[in-house]
Structures are given as C-alpha cells and as structure tokens.
C-alpha cells in the first residue's frame, strides 16, 4: 500500500505563491480561504540577515489529532497515508480545527463542513501530481510514495537532513522539510 508524503526543499522556495493560487483553483476553495500558505520569516540585523521561505499545508499526520477529536468519524486516516474528511458526515463542530496544532484547517462557510488539504488525491488517483507540486516554480515541493524506496521523496529523505514542523506536538507529520542555508557573507 502506498504511503504518500511531501518533501519541501525550503532552499528552493522562491516565495512565488503559485502553489497557493493553483491549489485554490484546483480544489475550488472559496475566496479568502486557503489550504496552503507560505511563510516568509526573516531573522537577524542589517546586513547580517537570513530569510526562510516555508510553504505549509496539512501534514497528513499518522497520529492526527484532528481525527482523534472528530466526533463523527468524518475526519479519518486513509490507508494510503493521507488524512481525509468525509463531507457528508461533517457537522461543522470545529473540534478538528481546535485539535490541529498546525492550523491547517478551515470551515467552508458556503457548505459548513471543515476542509483542508487532501494531497489532491483526486489528481494522484489519475496519476497526476498535486496541483501545488505540479506548478511549483522553484521545484521546492516534491510529492511521492514513501513505501517506494526509489521514489524521489524517499531519496530526498535518505540523502538530506530533514525535519518536521512542531515535532513536539507528536502527530507524526508526513510533510518533511529540508533546508540548505546559503553561507551568508
């Protein structure tokens, strides 16, 4: 069985936001709501500065707190490693929003259900890359199957020092970050 994951190479993220716009069009996300965001974090003092670009989305956690909290089973872990929401079961109680340490969810106010990144399974099932990955101008977002040792994601994780966000939250995220900082002068 496949184990989908995303590897995000921050050193290649150019902060272009193409991922955000593509995601919204692909998944018909209502205005002013987002499934993915881009952080732009600068530390230091002029002229010794370091800016980190980091795109964030649902981490499709193995121990997903959103799933634990969901009273209806609408939020569930799928055996392909993704976390999905069954809109027909969702009552919009927002427990999952409270439970997600990554603030990865929102309420679709047009229909009332909770929503978030799906890893674009509807595309992946057709053999396509997720929309944000397909259009990632910096090739910063890489999607693939960790159960396949030759997949690019497996390779990247094997070859690079990597981390997950908020490890301490203990949700076993499946979005991994690698970052090779330039040696600033």
């Amino acid at each position: 069985m496949s184990k989908y994951a995303m590897v995000i190479d921050q050193s290649r993220c150019i902060g272009c936001m193409a991922c955000i716009v593509a995601c919204k069009a692909e998944n018909d996300v209502p205005p002013e709501m987002f499934r993915t965001r881009v952080m732009d974090i600068t530390k230091g003092k002029f002229p010794k500065l370091r800016t980190e670009y980091r795109s964030e989305l649902c981490n499709h956690c193995d121990d997903a707190q959103c799933v634990t909290a969901c009273p209806t089973g609408a939020s569930h872990n799928r055996d392909d490693g993704t976390v999905q929401i069954d809109r027909k079961k969702c009552v919009g109680c927002k427990a999952c929003l409270a439970a997600c340490p990554y603030d990865a969810r929102y309420i679709n106010h047009e229909h009332g259900y909770a929503d978030k990144c799906t890893f674009c399974t509807h595309r992946v099932e057709k053999g396509l890359e997720p929309a944000c990955v397909a259009t990632c101008v910096g090739r910063s977002r890489i999607f693939g199957d960790l159960s396949d040792k030759n997949s690019e994601v497996s390779r990247l994780l094997a070859e690079n020092e990597h981390r997950v966000l908020l490890k301490e939250a203990g949700t076993k995220p499946q979005v991994y970050y690698i970052n090779r900082y330039p040696n600033h002068k």
Partner: peptide, 18 residues
C-alpha cells in the same frame, strides 16, 4: 523577527476563533 504569512485563514490566524 519579521514574519509575513501569505494565505492564512481568518478562522485560525492570527489566532483561533472557532
């Protein structure tokens, strides 16, 4: 530290209000 977030949801940012 300077932080810019592009694509944040009003319901969770700057803080949760569910």
């Amino acid at each position: 530290m300077e932080v810019i977030i592009t694509g944040a949801n009003a319901i969770t940012s700057p803080y949760l209000h569910i």
